[in-house]
Amino acid sequence: MKQLSIFIENKGGTLIRVLDLLSKAGIQIIASTVSDTQDFGIYRVLCNQPQAAFLMLKEAGINVQLTDVFAISIDDQPGRAAQAVEQISKAGVSILYLYSFLWKGKGVLVFRVDKQDVALSTIHTADMTQLTTSDFA
């Protein structure tokens, strides 16, 4: 699935502008994350219409990229995240970043990895549930 990656300045008011644009375009945010850095940050957003949101933000002059990530759903139980990460790591895949959120009583893990195809085949064999954008609609 596609994630929006938005380059923002580490300065007051910059996030609001992006959120405002998304809201005016009727885009629904499923999950988002931003890390603290020195000068700039990357605001990562899972939303219901990534392509439309991407084109709209680009049009508005925002530095934005569509990034491939994948999401899996796990039981909201201790040890399940560890299991999932272990499976992926065992397949020789490096995780670039990972974030998680709760969705309808399930845990959702979002991965950005170096070899997404290898990771995806691991998921299928390991019997974890992969989610797509439409699952969140």
Binding site: Q3, S5, I6, F7, S35, T37, F40, I42, R44, N63, V64, Q65, T67, L96, R112
Partner: peptide
């Protein structure tokens, strides 16, 4: 100013 966000990897930026 950055022209295009060509990566979402902090290290590359």
């Amino acid at each position: 100013e950055l022209e295009e966000l060509f990566t979402d990897d902090y290290q590359r930026l």
